[in-house]
Simulated scan of single mutants.
Amino acid sequence: MQPTLRRLDELATFLADRDDTIAVLGLGSAGAQRARLDEHSDLDFFVIVAEGARSRYVERIDWLEAPCPLLFSFAHERNGRKALYEDGIFVEYAVLTTTELAHVPFSGARVVWRRADAPAGLAQSEVPVPRTPYDTVDFHLNEALTNIYVGLHRELRGERLSASRFIQTYAVDRVISLLRLASGEAPYRDPFDVSRRVERAYPAEVLPLAEMIPGYAHNVAAARTTFRWLSRRYPVHPGIGAAITALLTRSGDYS
């Protein structure tokens, strides 16, 4: 068995002997999409516990250390931790009651272990996965254009880090969403992060990421590339198009 999955099984076996645990759910590549698991995958999971038991499993990590000593760990949220085992397996988990689980959005979960009397349907979230408010071509196109516009103004003001986020992150996320609408759902799409596995889904000639995301010192060049990519594929409104062109010209980087 792959070491990451074995570690999850080891944890589940240990927790199954406790009288206040209900289930262990694998998520991500340890969940329903195990075909994408590889040597670079981390281990994401939920531990479902009885009412009143959560603090025990959040504050004490003896159960986490049962299969292997930890090299490092820290609390990254109220209910969970991130940790690195001595053998190199990296984990991220949350401890939840069934009541709390009912309010958490997630997808692609797998029941690794459950108590015989555990509630049915633990692996299915009743909370919709957060999505962009308007998942349409019009929204993603115009959001990308306005991201570029705002980013160029931030660059001209000297706010280069903020500019890089608007131009090289937010606008590119919208480009990826446009590609998804045009070509369908990519295999193993992550509903929480549009950037996951895009390199496998779209070749460089379709999505030129190296030119769209050249780095902190190249915001204007990135804006030019993404603006041209959008303009060649979609009807850019002349108002915002002219405004972006003027900013690129002002920055001395448009021809």
Rank of each mutant, 00 (worst) to 15 (best):
A210S: 15
V194I: 15
R180Q: 09
R228D: 05
A171V: 04
A35G: 00
R78W: 14
G252H: 11
V150F: 10
H140F: 13
L179T: 13
I89G: 05
G252S: 03
A75D: 09
S177V: 01
S29P: 00
D193S: 12
P69W: 14
G52C: 14
H40T: 10
A182M: 11
S195I: 00
L141Q: 06
L96G: 01
S125N: 12
I48P: 05
T4P: 00
I176H: 00
Y85V: 14
R157K: 14
D253V: 11
T226D: 04
A16W: 08
L178G: 10
P119D: 00
D38R: 02
Y234K: 01
W113I: 01
H237M: 00
V91M: 12
F74D: 07
L178I: 08
R114Q: 15
I148M: 09
I61A: 13
V104N: 15
L141A: 04
G26F: 09
Y93F: 14
T225I: 03
G252P: 10
P130S: 13
V198I: 08
L71M: 11
L178C: 12
A75S: 07
V175L: 08
I22K: 08
E65N: 00
Y254F: 15
V127R: 12
M212I: 02
A171H: 05
L8R: 12
D190W: 09
V198H: 00
L25C: 04
V198E: 01
L145K: 03
S231L: 09
W63R: 07
G80E: 07
